[in-house]
Design a protein around this nucleic acid. Structure first.
Lengths: 245, 245
DNA sequence: ATTACTACTAAACGAGTAC
DNA sequence: TGTACTCGTTTAGTAGTAA
């Protein structure tokens, strides 16, 4: 069984709200479920649903039509009301919301935190480390991508970002093992999947024994971030760091 | 400690949506929590929030203003973004939704089911039973009301209602103990809190050894339901039966 | 960069009503 | 009773832009 975390396969925690009006529908579904429509076919009049939702009968009717069209409920209209059953597809939506919320309410850390830092050119060691085979294999296996041979160095400038980064250390990370070859020892590395500038997937990597202090972070990515995002030294970069479920 | 269930004190499972547009705000709160704003003051730009919500920056800004006004978040605007912390009040909203959902997803029965039946005049025994002191005391203690001396008899007419009622028997109920006096034995009674015709609180009572078959239910209430709802024999009545947490 | 105002557009809603 | 259509109203959302 694959227990390692891969970005490519990562289930989206955090609701996808691309087409965002789903909220109404989710809440309507929730109400229907409260009347038992997730377990059994429930007879629910549009008027009754309307009262529960605090909207008019007409709007309730329309929502049912929409839910039906989405395939989230199966609906049969009869002269005495609607027979409604939430479909597997609809129930899956509720489960998604529920598991999001469960994580939120029960984890001691947030699903994601955002850091901002300023690009600078480091000693060029990142490239050397990232290309060590023992590391590289683990990155591919555990992060799901082959890192571009180089790291993007970011200097955290505000107290807020430094504090946020220090809090991050308490959250679970993807642990990449250290190793040694004939010449020297390579320490373990902690990785957090991340999204850079809202666009590019990658990971924040944090060597346990870093040559930088705690106000510097290093980012790896399958692509060259400097090129992909047209970054130069001094540019400010936003990194959304994802914690682990 | 009071462990008995009382209708008057019953916590509302099922979201109250009197003023219903809270949905937007709850979802916005959810997103903010996903960025950690429930644990710590998070720096979140309206633009970033907007992307997460799938709405415009302007709308995100307005939602933050509204949440602030509701007292659900504490917000400080700075030139680099907003510093946002979800307040206890706001977090309570999320917890409410979460506990509703947990009950929904984890219980094997729905929070409420609705029955419809036709009023008929019974043998008049209901009044006798309800006024037996040993029962009456328990009703007051466990249901939180002193029942009007009489029951409303409803005949379930559709297969749907009869089936629903039979399912109800598997759900946990408020158990009222039986007893005996010098003359005879009074059996245990199972009660479910209920709302009659969307208006009046009461309870569905179900004697374990009923003289009626399973297509008849009896309702008690602090008031005379026939008077309060102007019911006559043959009228159809809707009863929303609440299951127990 | 940000936030958030005003003015306008689009979408959701509800009243009336047909069936 | 029920559901659900049309259509006018209300409300949420966006664009442009000032601070």
């Amino acid at each position: 069984m694959e227990t390692h975390f891969k970005i490519g396969q990562r289930k989206n925690r955090g609701f996808e709200m691309g087409e965002n009006q789903n909220w109404r529908h989710i809440f309507t579904l929730l109400k229907l479920a409260e009347m038992g429509a997730h377990k059994r076919t429930a007879k629910i009049s549009t008027e009754f649903l309307a009262r529960k939702l605090g909207i008019s009968q007409q709007s309730a009717s329309r929502r049912l039509i929409e839910l039906d069209r989405k395939g989230w409920i199966k609906r049969t209209t009869t002269p005495e009301g609607c027979l409604i059953k939430i479909t597997d597809l609809g129930f899956a939506e509720l489960k998604k919301l529920y598991s999001n919320m469960r994580f939120l309410m029960e984890a001691s850390y947030p699903p994601s935190v955002t850091l901002e830092g300023v690009v600078f050119t480091g000693l060029g060691e990142g490239s050397y480390y990232v290309t060590r085979d023992y590391y590289r294999k683990q990155f591919m296996e555990k992060l799901g991508f082959d890192p571009y041979p180089g790291t993007l160095n970011l200097k955290l400038v505000t107290d807020y970002d430094i504090k946020t980064y220090s809090e991050l250390e308490a959250y679970p990370a993807i642990e990449v093992e250290g190793f040694q070859n004939e010449n020297r020892t390579f320490g373990p590395v902690r990785c957090y999947p991340a999204i850079i500038e809202n666009k590019v997937k990658g990971a924040l990597v944090s060597a346990l024994r870093s040559h930088y202090n705690s106000s510097v972070v290093e980012i790896i990515s399958p692509v060259c971030l400097r090129k992909a995002l047209d970054l130069k030294d001094g540019h400010k970069v936003k990194v959304e760091v994802l914690t682990l479920p």
